Deep mutational scan, measured.
Amino acid sequence: MSIQHFRVALIPFFAAFCLPVFAHPETLVKVKDAEDQLGARVGYIELDLNSGKILESFRPEERFPMMSTFKVLLCGAVLSRVDAGQEQLGRRIHYSQNDLVEYSPVTEKHLTDGMTVRELCSAAITMSDNTAANLLLTTIGGPKELTAFLHNMGDHVTRLDRWEPELNEAIPNDERDTTMPAAMATTLRKLLTGELLTLASRQQLIDWMEADKVAGPLLRSALPAGWFIADKSGAGERGSRGIIAALGPDGKPSRIVVIYTTGSQATMDERNRQIAEIGASLIKHW
């Protein structure tokens, strides 16, 4: 067993022997301040990774656009098919120029040779490549099948209805392509620590998230040296922004954090800054 596999296998073990965790309302004060600064709703939840206990939450059962955070769930569904012998990570998928959609920095470079399922998941999570996500959605049967996968996990809230990039439209009061912070946090925890996926697939999923290259201005910008984070960000229309993450000190994750916002007129930089400040408060009061 590799060191990384050992780390993920012992996530519940280490967490069980940690000192009790206590909620700190100071972080919620910052979440509410972010709402004021952005002029928009902000949803927040913080779960203990081992027990699933909610440590703090704000608007945990209000719907927010998922945006690209759905790509972690998508690759979880792909990995479940791999575990069941219905898919192979090494299978190569070929596609054409007509398949390319807006923001496809990886797939646009491989029109000639195609990409493997493993490479597509890596591109979808680490670079948020939209064509990679659409190609992977095709392998599982489309958005409705991802929703069905989530329902089978016990998540009857999260739903995907459309493809990239239309799913980022974020129309107010439109339930399409949305989740709730509580539902997303619980589902992410199941994917990373539950028995739904094999140990190898859980490790692969967290490795992809740990290698995320496009979430630097968010929670990662607030992390002290030595902290662990595996995350996936999302951005959408109407001032929408979000991030889902597993993080913790001492090089291992111990909490799940989900943050979503929508309806702001603020710039992307300002949305990023507010999420980073929430992260800084979380870490300060850990």
Rank of each mutant, 00 (worst) to 15 (best):
P65I: 04
A235W: 03
N134G: 01
P172S: 10
T158E: 01
L205M: 11
S254K: 12
T126V: 09
S281Q: 13
T138L: 14
T138S: 13
E56W: 05
I93Q: 05
R255Y: 03
T116K: 07
G251I: 08
R176Q: 10
G43Y: 00
P65E: 01
I275Q: 04
L28H: 08
V31Y: 01
Y260A: 03
I244M: 10
D250H: 12
S104R: 03
E164S: 02
A84I: 12
E102M: 14
T261N: 06
I229T: 02
K32N: 09
D269N: 12
R59T: 02
Q265W: 12
I54P: 08
E277W: 07
L191N: 02
S240I: 04
R118V: 10
R189S: 13
Q204Y: 09
V106H: 08
D212E: 05
T193D: 12
R176H: 08
K232F: 02
R255K: 12
K53V: 15
T116L: 08
E270I: 12
V72K: 07
D129M: 02
I256C: 07
T262L: 07
T267E: 11
E169N: 11
C75V: 09
Q204N: 12
N152Q: 13
E145S: 13
G85F: 08
G76V: 05
S254V: 12
D113L: 10
A266E: 15
L55A: 07
A276I: 07
G248Y: 04
I243L: 12
Q37P: 04
M153S: 11
M180D: 10
E145V: 11
I140P: 01
P224Q: 07
E237V: 10
G39W: 07
N50Y: 12
T139L: 15
E145G: 13
L247N: 04
S104F: 04
G52W: 05
L136V: 08
S264R: 06
N50E: 13
S221F: 08
E169V: 10
T112V: 13
T107C: 11
R159Y: 06
L100Q: 06
W286S: 02
D212H: 04
D269M: 11
G251A: 12
I278P: 01
V258C: 14
D250M: 14
P65F: 03
L196A: 13
I93L: 13
W163C: 09
N168T: 07
R202P: 03
H285C: 10
L247H: 02
K71H: 02
L136F: 03
G234S: 06
